[in-house]
Computed example of a mutant assay.
Amino acid sequence: MRIVFMGTPEFAVPSLKLLVEQNYNIVAVVTQPDRPKGRKKTLTPPPVKEAALSLGLPVLQPERMKSADAVAAVAELRPDLIVTAAYGQILPKGVLDLPRLGCINVHGSLLPKYRGGAPIQRSIMNGESSTGVTIMYMAEGLDTGDMISVVELPITDEDTSGTMFGKLSIAGAELLGRTLPSIIAGEAKAVPQQNELATYAPNLTRADERIDWNKPARAIFNQVRGLSPMAGAFTYLNGEVFKVWACSADDEAGDPASNAPGTVLRADNNGIQVQTGKGVLSLKEIQPAGKKTMNAADWLKGARLEAGTLFGDGGAE
Rank of each mutant, 00 (worst) to 15 (best):
M1K: 05
V4Y: 06
V4N: 08
F5I: 11
M6I: 05
P9I: 02
V13L: 04
E21N: 11
N25L: 12
V29N: 04
V30I: 11
K41Y: 03
L43V: 15
K49E: 15
L53P: 00
S54K: 13
L55I: 15
S67T: 08
A68H: 13
A70E: 06
A73M: 15
A75C: 08
T84K: 06
V95D: 02
C103R: 06
H107S: 09
G108N: 11
L110R: 03
L111P: 14
G117M: 14
S123K: 01
N126I: 00
A139F: 09
E140K: 11
G145R: 14
G145I: 12
S149F: 14
T156A: 07
D159P: 03
A173P: 10
L176T: 11
G177Q: 00
L180M: 11
G186W: 05
E187S: 14
V191K: 15
V191D: 12
N195S: 14
R210Y: 14
R210T: 12
K215I: 04
N222H: 08
Q223S: 00
L227R: 04
P229W: 02
P229G: 00
M230Q: 12
G239N: 04
W245N: 00
A246M: 04
D255W: 07
P256F: 08
N259I: 04
G262T: 05
L265E: 02
L265T: 02
D268V: 03
N269M: 13
I272W: 06
V280K: 02
S282Y: 10
S282Q: 14
L283I: 01
I286Q: 01
Q287C: 01
Q287E: 09
G290T: 09
L300Q: 06
E306Q: 14
